[in-house]
Amino acid sequence: MTLLSIDDYRLAFDGFEGTAHVLDGITLDVARGETLGIVGETGCGKSVLARSLLRLNPAPPARVVSGTIRFEGENILAMPDAALRRLRGRRIAMVFQDPAAFLNPLLNIGTQMADVLHGQDSAGDAPRRSAREAHARSATLLASVGLPEPERLLDARPHQLSGGMRQRVLIAMALAGEPTLLVADEPTTALDVTVQAQILALIAALVAQRGLTLMLISHDLGVIAASCARVAAMYAGTVVEDAPTATLLATPRHPYTQGLLAALPDLDNPAHRPRGIPGSIPSLRNPPPGCRFHPRCAIATARCGVEKPALRALAPAHTVACHHA
């Protein structure tokens, strides 16, 4: 059953140097209970897409050009503010890259968690819960993300916590509203590899226990391969390939995805020599016509420079946007 349905979503940013066409016709469906990874390099629009789900991109400069984002059938892009407040945190929750930046250094964890809970009370027109209730609920949430001694932690300030603990606190806050969809934007990029593994394991456990739908955004295909059953690769504001993770890793069909895999050094196979993709990412203010990847593509033909390839199914659940796949 489809939980989230993005259809031909186009988003532009208007700036002094011109309009940047950051998302160029994103079409993506996410089923309830699915774990979807979105992989792509700097500037591919993956974080902007994630923020679009909660309408967090500041407008202006952001401007929706076309399309719909339906969550449980409702178009998020057309939601009134009150409905949007009920959506944020309670239906879709988000975890970000830099946990330190999302915690107020001056307030203790308990106060910040209570603020989140009270915010949800007011958004949902529920009676404001008492300090005692908020405290108890916060402690339960902290315990559920594997933090020891939650009672003591509620009195701590963010700087007294390590990076991994801070990210756990933010995950606990994201869970506070019992969301259906958890969007995690580079949740482990600021962390060390041993801590990254702990956080990924925590997210996987929460997804399994609570039946969450997960959208994990990362530049690191390894992180997504470990955590997600399905992956969508983005390039310059478009989804170029969408497939089950194992399929995409074994038989990538889009030249960009193939290039991305070839560029990745493999720890377990040092004989694999990574090869770079020639050229660099295009300007989104003045993107190449046709397929946005064609100037860097080894198999591009004249058609690629004129006609934008649509996503088409090569196999059930494996779609590719390439004229030559």
Binding site: G164, T194, V195, Q196, G222, V223, A226
Partner: peptide
């Protein structure tokens, strides 16, 4: 060993060392 095991691989997450540096 923990460092190597923590590197994410397909369908496999191994939190090999608890705690943080």
């Amino acid at each position: 060993r923990a460092l190597l095991a923590s590197v994410p691989r397909l369908g496999q997450i191994a939190a090999a060392a608890p705690g943080e540096p």
